[in-house]
Design a protein around this nucleic acid. Structure first.
Lengths: 210, 210, 210, 210
DNA sequence: TCGTAATCGAGACGGTACGTCAAGTCTTGAA
DNA sequence: TTCAAGACTTGACGTACCGTCTCGATTACGA
């Protein structure tokens, strides 16, 4: 996965290997300890054992670094893997998301969305490295489902994406409620009832739960 | 609607009438122009034609002011009004939300959620003045629907809230897509198919639209 | 003596009295300890017990502060006092300059001239507060001397100024030699022989010495 | 004239011929354009079409390079040539200095003196390559004048040097006035009246001018 | 009518972080 | 060993802005 915003040049002294990762790691630690505010580039650099300029060489701003480090932390390349049925794919993906977000504090995500919103370089990084892969993973699952006859041909992948990820995001950002199976079930049921053909594959999907 | 965090004292020179509103308005303008970053208390004060202390006298921090001003801007007390049928209530409410958020830039909301995340006083204010009224409005619509026999008795208002607001928020924060009727239709259909009894009232609900 | 570059405004909270002086003093200390390089605004502020912004509020740049503090340190309002004869005035002034510069390290002056040269605000400050008063003091002494008949009417004050201060400056900046009486004598003799009328007042001037 | 601080080694790839000069030239250009501040080794290197290390291989520090380049620029080996009379020698030398410094901006010299003050290696270089040759040239002129009977035997060359160069330096650093013939005349007259024997050679010295 | 109390605009205050810049050193592959 | 290129650490610069404090002036109410 590519993390920094720009390719390093090919001539001159090569970048110190491992520095990227050290910075991302230090950045993550500080995010979990102090959040976006109370997180300083100085501190990141010194924890990563790196000069400050080396941080700015890789990411153009604090916001971009934060987004990159969170993207790197919550990365999971193919969320909606092929389990044999669309409902299975969906449940597997939602389980991953639940485990990923469920264990973290709410504040982190507000901070990430803030960083994203307030910096265009950060936004681009976030869309490229985080949102796009998830959308594509879901789009592939939808294509498989259409091929299997589980979903209707005109199924709008963008809307499905909104219906799947939206409630999660909303509960994380706003809710005082945990990410539980009831929510997952409602989401799965909603998507399938709205876009489904009524036909399911013979892979028996469990009625609830991970 | 109450905006500032604390009641003014009753003795001494009374507060300048109109100052609250001038500050909120200046605050809103700056949010729309520059977002949370690139928004300074100094600028707010000078735009509102007010000393800086007068701002801090009314709101304890930048985050609190931002939340207050956004709450004030996007206020709409009873979103899900009684139209005679649950589907009608839902569509009416979603239409309000679509019109409200649809016209704003994406960035504003990331910023508001950040302000919320980074300041517990602000979060309380936001939940009290913004989220709670919407949830209660939806809860009342759900109760009406249960009474009419449109939704099942065990319908979980929190999950419905997540399913309704979540996709909107997601599309606003992430999406490059507009808030359109397809999304509204999918949300309505999803909620009704998951929690509905199959029975509808004889009030004809329009197939789409505002 | 006015030290900072601009008058403080008359409204709002007044500037902390004594802060100017504390900053100049801290600045002087650091100059004598470390010179211009190895002198940081941060250190000045912290030594003066003052926020950094309070320093920049008073002087627009490091260079301006250094010049101001040196000007303040080496201030001596009326160098060429009236002693009754031009030669006396000149010797008195040169004695002051010798004592002032003779005891300091060479480097300080290089630094001051550098700061002056590299910053126009600093240059203006230096000219206004340091060079001009000395020139005027000398100009007055010359006028007295012309009135007494000691110097010719067409005596050019600027050239006299160059002939008096120049050799001092040169020896301070370049020379490895101390500021001694031989130099003072030569300067005095030179000026009087070039611009004098040949007539002296009856105040007997000693042939050499302080 | 030797410019760099150390002899190149004799083995390995030989240094690129012309690089020394290219660096000095780039250095001079930048000094005239931006002064000491706003002059960076990076910029020097890139203007000279040279790697940064190649600059540091030749001069140990920025200060040393600046002094070297200024020395190289204002080089004029034998300033006070033998014209047949002391006054002639003096006038010839002062004319050279006037032409040399008169055309430059004031700031350059403050900067050079600073570079000198802040770096002992640079100071040594400056004294060796710039100040010393001028002093020796003047000292030779003085010896010739003593031999001719124009100056008294006990004439102190150091003081003469101060009296000659000081006013020039002072006017360059401080003055807002140009280097003109009045100053030159006053200097010449001063030196001759203070240290002269009263006797002049029969070489007619022109009353003023280059 | 006067004092008390809280307001007002203005702006200084200490503090903290930002992002930039430059110095001088180190490391690459190629010559 | 040099070369050009460019990474590296270090540290200061000047700016911005937060939230607090302080000034003189103003405005109400109550004794």
């Amino acid at each position: 996965m590519q993390t920094s915003w720009e390719e390093p040049p090919e001539r001159g002294r090569p970048r110190r290997s491992g520095a990227d990762e050290a910075i991302l790691k230090a950045s993550r630690e500080l995010m979990f300890e102090h959040g976006y505010a109370g997180f300083s580039m100085d501190e990141v650099a010194s924890r990563a054992g790196v000069g400050r300029q080396s941080v700015y060489r890789r990411w153009p701003s604090k916001a971009a670094l934060v987004v990159a480090s969170m993207t790197w932390t919550f990365d999971s390349p193919d969320v909606f893997k092929d389990t044999g049925s669309f409902e299975g794919d969906l449940r597997a993906g939602l389980a991953i998301m639940r485990d990923l977000y469920g264990q973290s504090s709410t504040d982190i995500f507000g901070d990430v969305y803030f960083a994203m919103a307030s910096d265009s370089a950060a936004r681009e990084l976030f869309n490229r490295n985080y949102v796009a892969p998830r959308r594509e993973s879901l789009a592939r699952a939808i294509e498989r489902a259409i091929a299997r006859g589980e979903l209707r041909e005109e199924t709008d992948a963008v809307i499905v994406s909104d219906m799947v990820s939206g409630p999660f995001l909303y509960r994380i950002l706003i809710g005082d409620y945990e990410l539980n199976d009831s929510l997952v079930n409602a989401i799965v049921e909603g998507v399938i009832k709205v876009f489904g053909t009524g036909q399911t594959t013979d892979v028996v999907t469990p009625p609830s739960g991970t």
